[in-house]
């Protein structure tokens, strides 16, 4: 499984403001998308610009924005050093990101396997999971080769490479997870306790570099919940609603019998 590219199209190196968006994005009504930004480039504070305007000031590695509601459209996203006065110089990295209406995505600033800065959008899967379950999406955005992900010592994802993701649905709760170099027991990150809330997608990012160290970042994306399929509730029939209770039936029958006996007497006495 690789990350979905359905909602996002990347075109490297594009620059220049898109007039359509700059003109009146406020009129984009509800054609908006939900976009979060995660900073996974170690040891580099940055400013994030969207279409030449500063979106995030002094963005620290290992931090995540709250979900932003952005009008759908193309955005030129660029990272500049945090001390850059504006977006006039050379960016650290820039990409054009096509934000599709109603999409839910996280744009990640990270390192390639070779250690070069990159911007990668991941689509967040918010489709429903069964009641009691949680979705775990692991995203490899570290300057590292392929990794395996272990939960409770068992490999649940193997051979995950940068910049890809793999998702699985697991019972909600807290799990202990670590990341090892693919096919080995060499622990790269963890073990760490991860809380996987029910009815939500938990995106876990493996980020960093050999020099700066590897870490996990966690993002919870709600909205995947579903209700149980029913409520059971009784096996004995003690409060059965159907029909008259047996003692009352007996009473009624007794009344009928009494009437019958009396009627017979009435008939006999008349004859």
């Amino acid at each position: 499984m690789t990350r979905s590219r359905t909602a996002f199209v990347l075109a490297a190196g594009a620059t220049g403001t898109l007039l359509a968006l700059g003109a009146s994005p406020a009129l984009a009504d509800n054609h908006t998308a939900t976009v979060s930004v995660l900073h996974g480039v170690p040891e580099t504070r940055v400013d994030v610009y969207a279409d030449g305007e500063r979106l995030i000031d002094d963005f620290q590695p290992g931090t995540l924005t709250d979900p932003l509601q952005l009008p759908a459209g193309e955005y030129d996203i660029a990272l500049y050093p945090a001390d850059a006065p504006d977006a006039s110089g050379d960016p650290i990295v820039s990409e054009t990101v096509d934000v599709t209406a109603d999409a839910n995505a996280t744009v990640v600033a990270h390192l390639t396997p070779e250690g070069q800065p990159a911007l990668t959008p991941f689509v967040n899967d918010t489709s429903a999971v069964p009641a009691g379950q949680a979705r775990l999406s692991v995203r490899h955005v570290a300057a590292a080769p392929a990794v395996d992900v272990r939960v409770g010592g068992e490999v649940v994802i193997d051979g995950l490479t940068n910049p890809n993701e793999e998702s699985l649905t697991v019972p909600a709760g807290t799990v202990t997870a670590d990341v090892v170099l693919a096919g080995t027991d060499t622990v790269a990150i963890g073990p760490a306790d991860l809380t996987l809330p029910e009815g939500a997608t938990t995106a876990v990012y493996a980020w960093g570099s050999q020099e700066a160290g590897y870490e996990l970042a966690v993002q919870t994306i709600p909205g995947a919940d579903s209700a149980p399929s029913g409520v059971p509730g009784g096996t004995a029939g003690l409060v059965d609603d159907e029909g008259v209770p047996a003692p009352l039936v007996a009473l009624s029958l007794a009344g009928l019998a009494a009437a019958g006996i009396a009627a017979r007497r009435l008939a006999t006495s008349r004859s």
């Binding site: 995030i56 290992g62 709250d66 970042a217």
Partner: peptide
């Protein structure tokens, strides 16, 4: 500008 204000938080588990 037109961009929303952005709240940022630590992403460590």
């Amino acid at each position: 500008g037109w961009l929303p204000e952005v709240a940022v938080r630590d992403a460590a588990p």
